[in-house]
Design a protein around this nucleic acid. Structure first.
Length: 398
DNA sequence: GCCGGAATAC
DNA sequence: GTATTCCGGC
C-alpha cells in the first residue's frame, strides 16, 4: 500500500471539512455574493467561541455548527442551525436544551426560530409550519425525532450525527459490538464511559462498527440495526476505504487521502487514541448544556489522566479543536483526530463570507499552521490501545 | 400542534 | 439531496 501525505486526496477531505482549517483567520463566503447582497443575510446564531462546545459531557465541534461541514451539502442545514442557536446564550429564550433529557431541546419561540432560520436562508416567508416540516424530514433520517406530548420539543440523535459527520471516525478501532459482549473491559473500544448504560453503549458500538464494516465493504455477520440501514449518513461523500485490516492492526499514522479519491487502505487511518483527560473533564457541562447525570460521568475525577496512560503518546498541550466524543477526552484526542479529520493545508476549500464576516473565527484555531505533517517512518507513534478511553454520551432514541 | 404527501426550487 | 411551500387530515 502506498503511503500518502498531506496535500493528496483532497476529495476525501472535502466532505468532512469543506472549510479551511485556517478559517479562523480568513473570511469566506458561504452564499453566492449575489444572493447575499439581495437578502442581506447574516450568520445569526453563529457561535463565536472556541472550536468546540460542550453538550452533555461531550463537545460539539465547529462542524456541528457550520453548514459547510455537512456532507453532501454546501449550504447550512437546519439541524446545524438549530445547534447553533442552542449553543448560544443569547438565544436561550428562543430555543434551549431541555433539562433532564439528552439531546432534547425546546423551541420556546417558534416564530422567532422560524424567523431566524428564514433570515439565514434568505427565506423571509419562513414560518414555524414550514420549519417544522423540514424538521419532520429528519425523522426518517433519524437525525431528529419528536418528543411526543411536549409542544415544540424535539430530540437529536447524536450517534446519527456522528455517523454523518465523522464517517471515518474510529474506523480502525472497535471490534463488532456483538463480539464485545462478555469481553473483558480492557478489550472494549475506546471512548466509552464506564457508567454508560448498556443500550447506549451498544448503540454507539453499532454505529462505529457500522462505519467500519461499511467502509470496508464487508458484511456484518448479524447485520446492523441502525447505522447500516442508514446507508452511512445518507451516503453522500463518505469515502470508502476498500480493504480493511483487522481491528487494532497497527499502521502508519495520519496518512490520509489518495489521488483520484481512491480509497486508502484502512491501515492508513489511525484514529485518535488515548489522550490524557483534563482533570476536570467530567465537570465540563456548562449552563448551555443539558444536564448530565452523575452515573454517566466519569467515576473517578481526581486523576483521570492516570487512567489513560496512552503509552507512546506524549502529552499534548495545544488547544483541542473540538470533536464529538473525543472532545471530552482532552487535548491529546484533539491532537490526534485533527490529524485524522481536518483538512490538510493547501486543499481547495469553499469560501464562506457570512461566517467569516461575523468574526466568529477563533484565532486559536489556526489549524493550518498547526497541522502536523506526518513524517515518513512515523509509524503509529501512539499506541492503538483503546481500553482506557472514556467519554460521556448522550442518550439516543431507541 | 403535529403529521406526512406532493410539487417545486435550488 | 435538502429544503420550501402548500395542504388535507388528525
Amino acid at each position: 500500500m502506498r503511503e500518502l501525505g498531506w496535500g493528496e486526496g483532497a476529495e476525501v477531505w472535502d466532505h468532512l471539512w469543506a472549510v479551511p482549517i485556517s478559517r479562523k483567520a480568513q473570511p469566506r463566503p458561504s452564499l453566492p455574493p449575489r444572493k447575499t447582497m439581495h437578502c442581506g443575510c447574516v450568520a445569526e446564531g453563529a457561535p463565536t467561541g472556541p472550536g468546540s462546545h460542550w453538550i452533555s459531557g461531550l463537545a460539539f465541534p465547529d462542524w456541528a455548527y457550520k453548514a459547510e461541514s455537512s456532507p453532501g451539502s454546501r449550504q447550512i442545514q437546519l439541524w446545524h442551525f438549530i445547534l447553533e442557536l442552542l449553543q448560544k446564550e443569547e438565544f436561550r429564550h428562543v430555543i434551549a436544551w431541555q433539562q433532564g433529557e439528552y439531546g432534547e431541546f425546546v423551541i420556546k419561540d417558534p416564530d422567532e426560530v422560524a424567523r431566524l432560520w428564514g433570515h439565514r436562508k434568505c427565506k423571509p416567508q419562513m414560518n414555524y409550519d414550514k420549519l417544522s416540516r423540514a424538521l419532520r424530514y429528519y425523522y426518517n433520517k433519524r437525525i431528529l425525532h419528536k418528543t411526543k406530548g411536549k409542544r415544540f420539543t424535539y430530540k437529536f440523535n447524536f450517534s446519527r450525527l456522528i455517523v454523518i459527520n465523522y464517517p471515518l471516525w474510529e474506523v480502525r478501532a472497535p471490534p463488532a459490538p456483538h463480539l464485545l459482549r462478555g469481553a473483558p473491559a480492557p478489550f472494549w473500544p475506546a471512548l466509552l464511559p464506564m457508567g454508560m448504560p448498556s443500550e447506549l453503549l451498544h448503540s454507539l458500538l453499532l454505529a462505529q462498527w457500522a462505519m467500519v464494516e461499511h467502509l470496508a465493504g464487508q458484511q456484518t455477520p448479524r447485520g446492523l440495526p441502525e447505522a447500516a440501514e442508514d446507508k452511512m449518513g445518507s451516503g453522500s461523500g463518505a469515502p470508502r476505504l476498500g480493504s480493511l485490516p483487522a481491528p487494532f492492526q497497527p499502521g502508519p499514522c495520519c496518512l490520509l487521502g489518495s489521488p483520484q479519491d481512491e480509497p486508502p487502505g484502512l491501515a492508513s487511518f489511525t484514529p485518535p487514541l488515548l489522550p490524557s483527560l483534563p482533570a476536570s473533564w467530567t465537570h465540563l457541562s456548562g449552563p448551555l448544556l443539558p444536564h448530565v447525570p452523575p452515573e454517566w460521568q466519569f467515576p473517578g475525577t481526581s486523576k483521570p489522566d492516570t487512567l489513560l496512560p496512552g503509552p507512546g503518546g506524549p502529552p499534548v498541550t495545544r488547544p483541542f479543536p473540538g470533536l464529538p466524543l473525543l472532545a471530552g477526552l482532552g487535548q491529546g484526542a484533539g491532537e490526534r483526530l485533527r490529524l485524522f479529520s481536518l483538512r490538510p493545508q493547501g486543499l481547495k476549500v469553499k469560501a464562506c463570507p457570512m461566517i467569516g464576516a461575523q468574526g466568529r473565527l477563533d484565532p486559536r484555531e489556526g489549524f493550518s499552521s498547526e497541522i502536523h505533517r506526518p513524517k515518513t517512518g512515523d509509524k503509529s507513534p501512539v499506541s492503538p490501545q483503546l481500553g482506557n478511553f472514556k467519554a460521556v454520551w448522550p442518550l439516543d432514541p431507541p
